[in-house]
Amino acid sequence: MASSVSAIAERDLPARYKGLGRRRFNSFLGTGLALFCALVAAASLLAILGYVVRQGVGAINWEFLTDVPHPIGVPGGGVGNGIVGSLIIIGIATLMALPVGLLTGIYLALFGRGVLPESLRFLSDVLSGVPSIAIGLFAYALLVAPFKHFSAFSASFAFMMLMLPLLVRTSEQAIRTVPQTVREGALALGMSNFRATIQIVLPTALPAIVTALLLAIARVTGETAPLLFTAFGSQFWETNPGNPMAELSLQVFTYAISPYPSWQAQAWGGALLLIVAVFVLSLGARLMLARAMRGLSE
């Protein structure tokens, strides 16, 4: 900036231009402080990641990924049934939450004013703030206690309740960001409101909706509390959603609080798998969002 052109001495300037040095210093101070805080935040994240990788990477091998847990004293064993269980429980939860969440989001985006939509929004915000253990308890009271039988489905139901508010609000937002001119263009061709939404507005909002879905899945992937009294856990290859089922984060919990060093090592391995899964989901979400942004500005 300080080229030969701007070689005007500070003292020659009118008073209102003076004090540049102090402003420059303040700006430097502020920027430096912000940078420092950002580094602290990044460092603690990296520390967690690094620690989990260091502790967990030793536990990960083929047997760990594909075998069921072994009884105490029998070496080896794995979390294969937990991985499968996670996929089944989260899969069923997604299948239930996606249509309900998406259609509710469409409803709010299209007919978003009035008492019913406003109360829906409020309820959805409340639901997203309810602790997951309370939602697990609700699923227990509704789907476990009456049948006196733990089940993977009750866990899916709890996960669905956790995903719903996220999906509702984010798909509403995604649909709202589609320009009104695009929607009016469709209506002006004589399309019905519903068809204009499904055929024109929704595809335009799709990348953002997929992003929201991936983030919602990532959110429940890390949940443990609702599983304690719904899926309950299992030592076996269990694929029937009507029965208790193993789940990865639940296994991490059980192993971590056990007194056996071999199980504790496996807990770190499981934790690493969970972090990798969430990392991949978040990365996928970011890539989708970047694509969506490009698509809109193109």
Partner: peptide, 15 residues
């Protein structure tokens, strides 16, 4: 709207 078409101020092709 089928009988009375419309062209808008800004081009709004379906993206």
């Amino acid at each position: 709207r089928r009988r009375i078409g419309m062209v808008f101020q800004r081009p709004n092709p379906f993206p």
